[in-house]
């Protein structure tokens, strides 16, 4: 019973703190980077879709490592699915 009460208490504190900070964050947002991307993405990268412009040009370094995550996961799954005698 005490455990459940503590859990509900903690969850309500978390909810209150989260909602307060999120409402405060809405009031003062820095829009300088958003304005920059809206203004310059089409002329810089030639992409009408700003998401692709950021994903494949401004932040290409990040997306390459995101692609490498998938290859690591796939190689792990294939390694585990092989039988003992197939792995050299």
């Amino acid at each position: 019973m005490i455990k459940k009460c503590m859990l509900i208490f903690m969850l309500t504190i978390l909810l209150v703190v989260f909602s307060r900070t999120s409402f405060q964050a809405i009031q003062n947002i820095d829009t300088s980077s958003k304005d920059y991307y809206l203004k310059n993405t089409y002329s810089d990268t030639g992409s009408k879709n700003i998401v692709t412009g950021i994903y494949l040009d401004y932040r290409l370094f990040d997306s390459i490592f995101e692609a490498s995550i998938l290859i690591i996961a796939v190689s792990g799954i294939i390694f585990m699915s092989k039988k003992d005698d197939e792995v050299v």
């Binding site: 089409y42 030639g46 992409s47 692709t52 494949l56 040009d57 997306s63 998938l70 290859i71």
Partner: peptide
Amino acid sequence: INLKSLFLTILNLFIGIKVSTG
């Protein structure tokens, strides 16, 4: 600008093939 979007098309195609095979 049209020439620049060629790079995006090529890279999108390669990433698409890689993700689908994975």
